[in-house]
Design a binder for these strands. Sequence first.
DNA 1: GAAAATTGTTCAATATACTAAACATGTACA
DNA 2: TGTACATGTTTAGTATATTGAACAATTTTC
Lengths: 192, 192
Amino acid sequence: MEINPPAIGKNIQRLRNNRKLTLNVLSERSGVSKAMLSQIESDKVNPTVATVWKIARGLNVELNDLLDAQGEPKRVFSLNPAGDEGPKLETHDKGVTIKILSPLHMVEDLEMYLISFDGHSKLESEPHYPGTQEYLTVVKGAVEVTVGENTAELHKGDFLVYHCDIEHSIANHSSTQPAQVHMVVRFSPEKR
Amino acid sequence: MEINPPAIGKNIQRLRNNRKLTLNVLSERSGVSKAMLSQIESDKVNPTVATVWKIARGLNVELNDLLDAQGEPKRVFSLNPAGDEGPKLETHDKGVTIKILSPLHMVEDLEMYLISFDGHSKLESEPHYPGTQEYLTVVKGAVEVTVGENTAELHKGDFLVYHCDIEHSIANHSSTQPAQVHMVVRFSPEKR
DNA sequence: GAAAATTGTTCAATATACTAAACATGTACA
DNA sequence: TGTACATGTTTAGTATATTGAACAATTTTC
C-alpha cells in the first residue's frame, strides 16, 4: 500500500517566502538547522513531528496548516459581503464585534478586521508574535488605544501604527457614541 | 530552548483502545511495526510525520486528531518599544479625496488610504506593477468597483480583494450619498 | 494444571533524520 | 573591479527513528 504523506515542504516554503524570512532567520526562530529546513522544503527527507512542530511555532501557524495538502485557488476577485453572516471573531469583551474582512487563504501575513464598539466597551488583546504590527484607522467615533504604557486618543479619520507584541487594548469611553475601527495586522518579523 | 511536541502517544493509545485494536492489528492496518507503535505510545521516540500519517490512516482519523495538543503552552514574547503616531497627508482628485494614512517610510510594500467620494464621483487608476493587490473596505455609502471586465457593487462593510495590475476604477453613482472606502495597497516583492 | 495463543515490551541492527561546517552563488558596497 | 556579506545547497558525521526478532506477562484451551 502506497501512502503519500502531505507535501509539507511546499507549505513551509510558501509560508516562509510570504513572510520574507530567510532560512537563517527561520532556523534561529524555530530551533531547526537551516540545512534541515532546506532539505525539508525540497522534500529530501521525512521530517519528524517534533521538527515540524518547531517550524510551525517559528512560523506562528498551527501545525495543521503545514500538514494540510491545500490546493489554494488564487482568486483574482474575491468579495466578502457585509450583510451576510460572515466569519466573526469571538471576543470575551462585551460590546465588541470583530468582523474578519480578509479570507485567510489569500494572504498569510496580512489580516484585516472591522471592529465595532458599543458604548463603554473595551477590547483587550494579548501580545502577538514579535515584529507584528497593527495599522489602525478610526472609521467612526473615537477610541483610546493603549499599547504598553503609551496611550493615544484617536478620533474619526485618525491613523495609528504600533507594534503589538506587548499587551494592548482599544477602548470606547463614550457611553452614547458607538465607535468603529479598521485594523490591518501584519505578521512580519523585522529583518536584521 | 526546549520545545515539547504534542503528546501524540496518548492520543494514539486512546484511539486504539477505544476501537479495541491490538498493536498487531493496527500494525498490519497502518503498515507501521508494532514495536514502533509501542514506543510511540510510550513517548520513547519522536516519530516521523510519515509514520504518524500512516497511523492516522490506520485509525481512520485525520492527522490533526493525533497531533491535537489540548494543553498547549502559551508562547512568551519579548518586549519592544511601542510605536509612534503617523503623520497625515492629503491629495485631491476631482470629487475624490484621498487621505494617505501610512507614510512610505514606515512600510516599504504597504500603503493605506482613506478615500472619500462626493456624489457622482469616480476614481480611475492606471495599472500598477504586476502582482500588486488592493484590499478595499467600504466604510460609508456604496461604490461600484470595476477591475478589468469584472464589476462589483459594494455597500457599507463589504470587503473586496483584487489584483490591480490592470485598469481599475471605483465609482460612487449616488448623487446624494457620499461614500468612503478604506484601501490597503500591497506591492508585490517581485523585481524589475 | 500445562501448552499454546495473545498482547505489550525490549534488543540488536539498520535506515535515515538531523546537525555543523564547507560550499556555491549571488548581491551590495567601497 | 575587488571585498565583504548574505542566502540557499551539499557533505560528512552523529543521533535516533524504525524494524524484525526475542522476550515477558497474561489469557485461552484442552
